[in-house]
């Protein structure tokens, strides 16, 4: 059942050996040591494990690695770093949008995908784009403001 699978991860080609039915999340965290993508429910319900697959926000907790051959995967690490943050990451910090922060990686992914197609979303549009991301701490309003702020940064407007 094991084999090697090649795909693009955060802009670089990678090859991993894994069971075909291993979840992408397990490979990211267990094999590749990338910890930003988080386990929340393991059942595609909470969005903590979200990554971009060919630009589409996708829960990685049940996504079989075999289905990723040749595809393009971006994790929160691939969006930006502390030194070169993605506008969503910078805006989350600007707005102090988070309490425990556990939900924030998946939210960054969903927000980045939203802003890529609509850099000027209304509150309801942001909320709709984040409907699959749970936050138990109640940081929602700050997160929505941060996503809108990131949009302004991307549009070159004053944040």
């Amino acid at each position: 059942m094991s084999g090697t699978i090649g795909f693009t991860l955060n802009g670089r080609p990678v090859t991993v050996s894994a069971r075909a039915d291993d979840a992408l999340l397990a490979v990211l965290r267990g094999t590749l040591g990338l910890m930003a993508t988080r386990f929340g429910c393991g059942a595609e319900a909470c969005g903590a494990c979200m990554v971009l697959v060919d630009g589409v926000p996708t829960n990685s907790c049940t996504l079989e690695i075999a289905r990723l051959a040749g595809r393009d995967v971006v994790t929160a690490e691939g969006l930006g770093t502390a030194d070169a943050p993605h506008p969503v990451q910078a805006a989350l910090l600007d707005e102090q949008a988070g309490q425990c922060g556990y939900c924030l990686s998946g939210i960054q992914i969903a927000a980045a995908a939203l802003l890529a197609r609509n850099p000027d979303p209304a509150r309801a549009e942001v909320a709709e784009a984040l409907a699959g991301n749970f936050c138990r701490c109640g940081a929602h309003n700050r997160i929505i403001r941060a996503v809108q702020r990131a949009g302004r940064m991307m549009r070159g407007a004053t944040p």
């Binding site: 910890m35 502390a82 990451q89 989350l92 556990y102």
Partner: peptide, 9 residues
């Protein structure tokens, strides 16, 4: 503690 949580780990 927030930056550490935004950038993973």
């Amino acid at each position: 503690d927030l930056p550490g949580k935004v950038f993973g780990g």
